[in-house]
C-alpha cells in the first residue's frame, strides 16, 4: 500500500504530505512558544519588580537583564545557531546536487554546531546555579529557564533527528532507488524547516530575555 504524494508534490496543492505536515507542526509550535511569550509579557506587565524596571516612587532601576544573564555567551550561541542553519541548507543542497559526501560533511557540521550550542547553554546554566540563581529566584528567571529549557529540548530533538539522518537513516540514500533518494532529500528538507524554526525561536528569545 502506497500513500499518494509521499514524495512528489500533489499538483493542485504544490506540496508533498511531509512538507504540509511539518508546516502544520510548526504552526502549532508557534502557538506553543507564542503562549509562553504571551505569558512572559503578562507576567512582566503585572510584576511589582522586574529586571530593568524603575520603581514608581524612588526611581531606582532594578538590576538589568543583561547584568543577570550573560549576553556574550548568548551572542556566541546566536552565531552558532545561525551557522548551523546555513550548514543545514548546504547539506540539503548537497543532496540536490547528488553529492552524498558533501551532505555527510555539512550535516555532521550541523550536528556539531548544535551540540556546541548545548555546551554553551550548559555553561550558562551551570554559572547560574553555582551562584545560587535558580528558576524559583524570581519570575524573570523562572520564565528564562522555562523558555530556554524548552528551546534546548527542541535543539536536542533536532540533534537526534539529524543524527539519525547522518547515520542509520542515510541507508535510504546509499542503498535506495531513485525514488528513495528523492524521498530522503525531502526528509532532509523537512528536518531543515524544523531546524530553521528552532533557530528562529532563539532569535526571538535572545533579545526578548537578554536585552530588553
Amino acid at each position: 500500500m502506497q500513500i499518494p504524494y509521499e514524495v512528489t508534490p500533489r499538483p493542485d496543492t504544490g506540496v508533498n504530505n511531509a512538507k504540509l505536515g511539518i508546516w502544520l507542526f510548526l504552526a502549532s509550535e508557534v502557538m506553543l512558544f507564542g503562549g509562553l511569550f504571551a505569558a512572559y509579557v503578562f507576567l512582566r506587565m503585572g510584576a511589582d519588580a522586574w529586571p530593568g524596571m524603575e520603581t514608581f516612587d524612588t526611581h531606582v532601576m532594578a538590576t538589568r537583564a543583561d547584568q543577570i544573564l550573560s549576553v556574550p555567551l548568548a551572542t556566541l550561541n546566536t552565531v552558532i545557531l545561525i551557522a548551523s542553519s546555513v550548514t543545514m541548507v548546504l547539506s540539503w543542497a548537497a543532496l540536490k546536487m547528488n553529492n552524498f559526501k558533501q551532505f555527510r560533511l555539512q550535516m555532521g557540521l550541523t550536528i556539531l554546531l548544535a551540540l556546541g550550542f548545548l555546551v554553551v547553554k550548559a555553561f550558562e546554566y551551570g554559572d547560574k546555579f553555582s551562584h545560587g540563581v535558580a528558576p524559583e529566584t524570581s519570575n524573570f528567571l523562572g520564565i528564562y529557564f522555562v523558555l530556554t529549557g524548552l528551546h534546548a529540548v527542541h535543539v536536542t530533538g533536532g540533534i537526534l533527528v539529524n543524527a539519525y539522518f547522518w547515520g542509520p537513516g542515510a541507508k535510504m540514500w546509499t542503498q535506495g532507488s531513485v525514488r528513495a533518494k528523492a524521498h530522503f532529500t525531502n526528509r532532509i528538507e523537512v528536518a531543515g524547516l524544523y531546524w530553521h524554526f528552532v533557530d528562529l525561536v532563539w532569535i526571538f528569545l535572545f533579545p526578548m530575555i537578554y536585552l530588553i
Binding site: M31, L32, G34, G35, L43, N139, G142, I143, L150
Partner: peptide
C-alpha cells in the same frame, strides 16, 4: 492551534509544582 497554549500553561504549572517557581 488551541492546544499548544495549554501545553505552555501546563509546562508553567509543572515548573510551579516541581521547580518552585511562582508563575
Amino acid at each position: 492551534l488551541a492546544f499548544p497554549p495549554l501545553e505552555a500553561a501546563g509546562f508553567l504549572q509543572l515548573a510551579d509544582r516541581l521547580l518552585d517557581t511562582s508563575f
